Structures are given as structure tokens and as C-alpha cells.
Amino acid sequence: MSFSLISEKLRQLKLAGMLKEFENHQHNTLYDTLSFADRLSLLLTAELNDKENRKLARLLKAAKLKYPHACYEEIDFNPKRELDRQLFANLSTCDWVRNNQNLFLTGATGCGKTWLASALGNLAARNGFSVLYKRVPTLFEAIQIAHADGSLPRLRLQLSKCDVLILDDWGLSPLNQTTRHDLLEIIEYRSNHSAIIITSQLPVKEWHHYIGDPTIADAILDRIVHKAHQLNLKGESLRKLMNHKS
């Protein structure tokens, strides 16, 4: 079978990774000394790597992270930030996602909460988990529109089916009775089968007061707090430090 015919069949089978590797073999005589099994192994490995890379690209695109290029390996463990290295070592395994646990990142504005949430979301995607970033004030606006145009079931499905939901800037927007119930529905949909990352300027102890309605606050916090890792970020504002350097 000719080179061109094999290439065409690989295209028809949509084996892009294998096709690229096969074409490399045709233009490099170093591969001529390999056995059939070794060359087939290289072709199959190339195809698997290509599929994994395309899957990761899809996951990261769908995640819509605030900082899409933030990554775990670049976390700044400056002592002034008082980051728990052991906690982050545990988080790096993504077992918290597999075990449907949550992560709360609290601290003053500019201390890097959103960047860390993005880095951990990126890491989860690299481990094959679906991730979705939502800024809470914008999410509440979207929910309000969804109530009006009938798209709320679709939005709830989107929020419930991802493995990791990032809720950024929790506590900035005031809640009314409708948004309290909507928030409870989101948490209930995700309870016991997925993970949530929450970033907030408010310490966790103030969340009950922020939610407002004691009954709904109890229901929400009971579902998310008891199985959560909590990290209060400290240190100077990273935004101010970056501005001083620039």
C-alpha cells in the first residue's frame, strides 16, 4: 500500500496524531531500523498524546478561567503568604475532586485568590476533570435573565454537570430571596457528586450572615462547609506589588 493511500485512510479515520507521526517516519531514515512493533507503538503513542492534548484544550476552553495560563507549578510560596505547602501537595493529587470536596480561598482583595483558583482549575483540567469558572455577581445576573427567558433548567444543568465549579467573588453581591433559593438549588444539584472552589473577601464565619435567611444559610453551609479545605490568604496585595515593579 502506498504512502499516500495510508495517509488518506488515517485522515478518513480521523487519526490526526498517528498521521503526523506516520509522515515523520517517511521523512526520517532513523525509523527504518525499528521493528514493526516499535514503529506501531510510536504511532499509537502519538495518537493517544494527540487525543489527550485536544481533550485538555477543550476542557480549558470550556472552563473559561479568569487566568487561563495560571498553573499549579508557578504558585508563589513566599513565607509572607503563609501558604500551607502540605495542603497544596494534597490538592495537587486532585483527590479532593475525586472525593467531592470543596476549597475555600479567602483573604483581602488582590492577594491572589482568583489566580490560585484558576491554577487549581487548570490542574484539575490537566487531570481530565471538567471545570467551569463563574464570577458570582455575573452568575446571579445570568440566573435572573434565565428566570425571565425560560433558560434556567439549561443553566442549572451547566452548573451541575461540571466536576469543578469555581465561584469567584462570593459575598460581593447582596442576596434577595430569589437568589438565595437559586444558590441553594445550585449547591443541592452539586451536593455529594462534585467539587466547588469559592473565593471570597469574607471570612467563612461571616457567610451565614451574608446569606441572610437563617434556614437557607444553614442548608447551604451544611452542604459545603463540612467537607471543605479552607485557606485564608495573607500578605501584601499582589496587584500592588506588580504595579510597583512595572
Rank of each mutant, 00 (worst) to 15 (best):
M1D: 07
S2R: 06
S2P: 12
S4Y: 10
Q12Y: 00
K14T: 02
G17C: 06
K20T: 12
N24Q: 12
H27G: 09
H27I: 00
H27N: 15
T29W: 00
R39P: 06
L40R: 07
D50W: 00
D50H: 03
E52Y: 08
N53E: 15
R54A: 14
L59G: 03
K61V: 01
A63T: 02
K66E: 14
K66C: 10
K66N: 12
Y72N: 03
E74W: 02
I75R: 10
D76S: 13
D76T: 01
D76M: 04
K80D: 13
R81W: 08
R81F: 06
R85F: 02
R85M: 02
F88T: 06
S92Y: 06
S92Q: 11
T93D: 15
W96R: 09
N100L: 04
L103F: 11
F104L: 14
L105H: 08
G107Y: 00
A108F: 01
T109G: 13
A117F: 05
S118K: 04
G121L: 09
L123E: 05
A124V: 02
R126K: 14
G128D: 11
G128L: 11
K134F: 03
R135M: 05
T138S: 15
T138Q: 15
F140Q: 15
H147Q: 15
D149H: 10
S151E: 09
L155Q: 08
R156G: 04
L157Y: 05
L159H: 11
V164H: 00
L165C: 09
I166V: 12
D169L: 02
W170T: 06
S173H: 08
S173L: 09
P174V: 03
L175F: 12
N176F: 09
N176L: 07
T178H: 12
T178W: 13
D182G: 06
L184H: 07
L184Y: 05
E185D: 09
I187F: 09
S191V: 01
S194I: 08
S194F: 07
I198D: 12
T199V: 14
S200N: 10
S200C: 07
S200Q: 07
V204K: 13
E206D: 14
Y210A: 08
Y210I: 05
G212F: 06
D213P: 05
A217E: 09
A219I: 03
R223M: 12
H226N: 13
K227Y: 11
L231H: 14
L233N: 03
L233I: 12
L233P: 01
K234A: 05
L238D: 05
R239L: 02
H244D: 14
S246T: 07
